Simulated assay, not measured.
Amino acid sequence: MTDITVRPLGEDDWEDYRSVRLAALRESPEAFAATVEEEEAFDESLWRERMQRSARLVAEREGEAVGVVSVGVARASEGVAGELFGLWVRPEARGSGVATRLVTDSASLAAERGHSHLVYWVGTENGRAVAFASGMGFRPTDYRRPMGVVSEEDGEEEVAMVLALGNDSGPQLRL
C-alpha cells in the first residue's frame, strides 16, 4: 500500500479543491445537498471565498487526490466546537485508511484552532458511517436534524456525533 499524505489547502489551491469536490459530487450525489451542476457553475471568486470560510484538507496517494474533508466552526457553538463536514473518499481508496487519516488530521487541526470538540453529523440509518465515527472516538448526542438529502442509506435525519479534543471534555455543547 502506498503512503497517504494529507495536506491543507489554501486559497490559492482552490482549483485542487474544486477538482476533488466535483469528483465527490459526481460519484456520490446522494451524499451532498449541492449538485455537481450547481458547483460547476461557480466562478473562481466563489471558490476562493469557500477556501477562506473553512479549512479544506485533501488526502493524496502518489500525487493523486483520493479524499477530501472540510473543517469549520459548528453553528451556535460560540466557536467552542469545530465541525467536520464534506468527508469523501474515492471508491477505490475506501477501506484503505484515507478517511481515518483525514479525520485524524482534521481533529488535530481543530484542536490547534482552539476547539474543544469536533462535531460530525451522520445519517442515523448509515450504520457504516456511525460505526466509523464511533471507532474514531466520536460519541452520539441527543441532537438530531433533518437530512439535507434524504437517502435510503442515511435515512431521514442525522445525529450529531461529538469527539472531545484534548484531555478535557470541555464545556457542554449548545448546537
Rank of each mutant, 00 (worst) to 15 (best):
M1A: 15
M1N: 12
M1I: 09
T2N: 14
I4V: 08
I4A: 04
T5K: 10
G10K: 10
E11D: 08
E11C: 07
D12R: 15
W14D: 03
E15W: 14
D16S: 14
Y17F: 12
S19L: 13
V20M: 11
A24G: 00
L25G: 00
R26A: 10
E30W: 10
A31G: 01
A31L: 04
A33W: 15
T35D: 00
T35M: 01
E37R: 12
A41V: 08
E44V: 11
L46N: 09
M51S: 09
M51P: 10
R53D: 05
S54E: 13
A55W: 14
E60Y: 13
E62Q: 13
G63E: 05
A65Y: 08
A65W: 12
A65I: 07
V68Q: 10
V73Y: 08
R75N: 13
G79Q: 10
V80M: 12
V80Y: 15
A81R: 10
A81V: 02
G82Y: 07
L84W: 03
F85C: 14
F85H: 15
V89A: 01
V89C: 06
V89H: 02
E92P: 03
S96N: 06
G97A: 02
V98M: 02
R101M: 05
L102S: 01
L102P: 03
D105L: 07
S106G: 06
A107G: 00
S108I: 14
A111T: 09
A111D: 07
A111C: 05
A111V: 11
H117D: 02
L118F: 04
L118S: 02
L118H: 07
V119L: 11
Y120P: 02
G123V: 03
G123A: 08
G123W: 11
G123E: 02
G123M: 06
G127I: 09
A129D: 05
A133R: 12
S134D: 12
G135P: 01
P140C: 06
D142A: 15
D142P: 04
D142F: 13
Y143G: 05
R145C: 02
P146A: 03
M147K: 13
G148E: 04
V149L: 15
D154M: 07
G155R: 12
E157Y: 13
V159F: 12
V159K: 11
A160Q: 01
M161G: 05
L163H: 03
L165E: 01
L165D: 04
L165R: 08
G166K: 06
G166D: 00
N167K: 15
D168T: 06
L173M: 08
L173F: 12
L173D: 09
R174T: 10
